[in-house]
């Protein structure tokens, strides 16, 4: 009996930290197995790539915590980036402001449709996915929007303190903010409660609509930020390529991180590590000349394994 109990506790511990453990294992393996892994270049590349995935994953984690899903994040990135890029081209601050307002407004719309009209999150965000990607293509004429803004570009590309990319700080800030919201604020407690048991949450007087709308809105805002990052590095925004397949990475990161797919506690540290794991696999494969297809297959297997692992124990009930 006691033996079983300790195993059970271990499983709980493992589930909570599986993403972190995976990340550390991959890190150690790479340090020994991959040539030139421990270098500033790797560090730079890693954070330049992982930050946008991580930003979107943080939002996705919140949405998944409410029992929802958002497949419009990639399109939100594109719309935000294209609008903002146009704003820079035409030197119109209004457009830049509009870019975030519009994207967040769409997020709110998704939240309202899900919580008030009881539409499936998947369907609403599918529609928004088309709408936002379409708008991005429409306003740009489906062409790459290139701008020249040396200072802005320098901000995104020039390392701080000689070695550290600005992405690193953005990532730290975003993770910290979302972590604080989830773990230190009223809102976070309410999101957790709502995700865990929506009926009980309503009985406790929690405004469920507000919670859901917030989660979709913050996801939209984070997607916007991710879009800016992606555009900022190359000083241009292509409406068709920005953020494609981002929802796959984001959902995978959140789920590997231990946010339960049917709602519950949004595991922010786990989600961050989940994003790190995905990026690390990509980099590892890149640096060891493993072809892209194999990387893709490897990622698929890891996602399945993580999901299967998180499902253990839940199913036995």
């Amino acid at each position: 009996m006691t033996e079983k109990r300790s195993f059970h506790l271990d499983l709980v511990f493992l589930k909570k930290h599986i993403a972190l453990i995976l990340f550390l294992v991959l890190l150690v393996v790479n340090i020994f197995a991959t040539n030139n892994f421990l270098s500033w270049i790797t560090f730079n590349n890693f954070f330049k790539q992982v930050t946008r995935i991580c930003l979107v994953s943080l939002g996705m984690s919140l949405v998944i915590a409410t029992g929802g899903i958002d497949i419009s994040v990639g399109s939100a990135m594109a719309l935000g980036a294209v609008l903002a890029a146009l704003g820079i081209v035409h030197q119109s601050p209004l457009l830049i402001v509009l870019s975030i307002v519009l994207v967040v407004a769409f997020g709110c719309l998704a939240g309202v449709a899900v919580s008030k009209l009881a539409i499936l999150p998947m369907v609403v965000t599918l529609a928004l996915r088309y709408a936002m990607r379409g708008m991005a293509k429409g306003i740009s004429g489906a062409a790459n929007v290139t701008y020249t803004a040396p200072r802005l570009t320098a901000f995104f590309t020039k390392p701080v303190f000689g070695h550290i990319p600005v992405h690193f700080f953005i990532l730290i800030a975003a993770v910290a903010i979302v972590y604080i919201i989830v773990n230190k604020m009223k809102l976070g407690s309410r999101i957790e409660a709502y995700g865990n048991n929506p009926v009980a949450a309503r009985n406790c007087g929690i405004n469920t609509v507000k919670i859901v709308v917030f989660c979709y809105a913050i996801t939209a805002a984070l997607s916007w930020a991710a879009g800016m990052l992606e555009a900022g590095v190359v000083s241009s925004a292509h409406p068709s390529t920005i953020g494609t397949d981002m929802e796959i990475d984001a959902i995978a990161a959140a789920l590997i991180g231990g946010t339960p797919i049917d709602g519950g506690y949004p595991n922010i540290v786990g989600t961050t590590c989940g994003a790190f794991v995905l990026q690390l696999i990509t980099m590892m494969c890149n640096m060891n000349n493993v072809s892209y297809p194999v990387t893709l297959m490897l990622k698929a297997c890891i996602i399945l394994a993580a999901l299967y692992f998180h499902g253990i124990g839940k199913r036995s009930r």
Partner: peptide, 17 residues
């Protein structure tokens, strides 16, 4: 079904309202 938040700590269950 309608009262507890099963996967949430006692403390957070207690103070949610």
């Amino acid at each position: 079904e309608e009262g507890i938040f099963p996967d949430v700590s006692v403390q957070n269950n207690l103070t949610i309202c």
